[in-house]
Amino acid sequence: MNPHREDLESIGRLVKELPEDTPSMVWRSQLSQRLAAEQKPKRPFAAWLPGVLAAASAALVIVSALPAMMRSTAPGPVVAESWLMADHTMLSSAADLETGSMNPYEASDFVSAASWTEDGGFEGF
């Protein structure tokens, strides 16, 4: 028999006879916990489905309603012009009422000045 081969085989036996390694009970307990966590089934898609559908519906409603909402709040060109005209008329009337810083009574007196005559006479008094 080849002594070299024999020696190498005895080396193999040497490795085999090294002592066994045993993990601790704590290690085993931790592993059991991890495996138990793995055993729990992942949340099935069916459980997520109602929520996903509700969110999708809400998003759809918002997206579809958005253009209509924007149309109702944004004035068209004709409407805007009429608004501007109305504003302008109102402001002008107010300015007329305040003409020369007169109060309404003074303004009415001012209107009665129409009774002055061309030749400088005054018919009112």
Partner: peptide, 11 residues
């Protein structure tokens, strides 16, 4: 690593 081996095997 040994724990990981068994967890992966179970998975």
């Amino acid at each position: 690593v040994t724990q990981e081996v068994f967890v992966r095997a179970f998975q």
